Simulated assay, not measured.
Amino acid sequence: MTTPSALDARAALRVAVVLIFLVFGYMKFLPYEAEGVQGIAATYWLFGWMYPLLGVQGASNVIGILEVSAGVLIALGGRFPLAGLVGGLMGVATFLVTLSFFFTAPGIVEPGYAFPALGGTGQFLAKDIGLLAICVFLALDARQRLTQATT
């Protein structure tokens, strides 16, 4: 049985990560964000193929659709565990991908310093460690609720 305070904490985590996905997903539809994302994503194996096919804004729109979809599914996960499981797994995938930029993106470490002196890009990506943990928690919680519903 889950205590009310645990339910409140789960709801707070859900709301926080949903807001992040919705805001960051929405921003991908804006030209300034599309240009910013291109700096990291255009040379990345997972996204690079989209740029010649869809252009800068088109590639960013695809990323935005995925982020908004993850946010909506995680939000629905409070009521529908299957949606929460799919959204949580999408969130896990999203943050594993963004954290993998630590190995390829410029600006991870501040010039003239060594790790862990993070540069602007590194500081921006570091938050994804916590967001990954939240998505893992929400996916596992949804899986547990699905399992309980079928037994």
Rank of each mutant, 00 (worst) to 15 (best):
R14T: 09
V15E: 00
V15L: 08
A16G: 08
V17M: 02
V17N: 00
V17R: 00
V18Q: 00
V18K: 01
L19S: 10
L19K: 08
I20S: 03
L22C: 05
L22D: 01
L22M: 07
L22I: 02
V23G: 01
F24L: 08
F24A: 02
G25L: 01
Y26S: 06
Y26Q: 09
M27A: 15
M27N: 15
M27P: 14
K28L: 09
P31M: 06
Y32Q: 12
E33A: 14
E33S: 13
A34C: 09
A34S: 08
A34N: 06
A34E: 04
A34H: 06
G36L: 06
G36Y: 14
V37T: 14
V37S: 04
V37G: 14
Q38R: 15
G39L: 10
G39H: 10
G39E: 11
I40K: 14
A41Q: 13
A41P: 14
T43D: 12
Y44C: 14
L46A: 10
F47D: 11
F47Q: 12
G48E: 07
W49Q: 15
M50T: 05
M50R: 15
Y51A: 03
P52S: 03
P52A: 07
P52Q: 03
G55N: 09
V56F: 03
Q57C: 15
G58Q: 11
S60E: 05
N61L: 07
V62P: 08
V62E: 05
V62D: 02
I63P: 11
I63S: 06
V68S: 08
S69M: 04
S69V: 02
G71T: 02
G71V: 00
G71M: 01
L73W: 04
I74Q: 01
A75K: 00
G77W: 02
G78A: 11
G78W: 00
R79F: 04
F80V: 13
F80R: 10
F80A: 07
F80H: 10
P81W: 00
L82D: 03
L82E: 04
A83N: 12
G84Q: 05
G84C: 08
L85M: 07
L85D: 02
L85V: 06
V86Q: 05
L89E: 03
L89R: 04
L89G: 05
M90E: 04
G91T: 00
V92K: 01
A93L: 02
A93D: 09
F95K: 03
F95Y: 13
L96M: 10
L96E: 11
V97K: 00
V97L: 04
T98D: 04
T98A: 08
L99C: 02
F101R: 06
F102L: 11
F102I: 11
F103D: 15
T104W: 07
A105F: 12
A105T: 11
P106D: 05
G107Q: 10
I108N: 12
I108T: 10
V109F: 04
E110R: 07
E110F: 06
E110I: 05
E110N: 05
P111G: 14
P111K: 06
P111E: 13
Y113L: 14
A114S: 15
P116G: 06
L118M: 09
L118D: 05
G120D: 10
G120H: 13
G122C: 06
G122A: 04
G122T: 03
Q123V: 15
F124D: 10
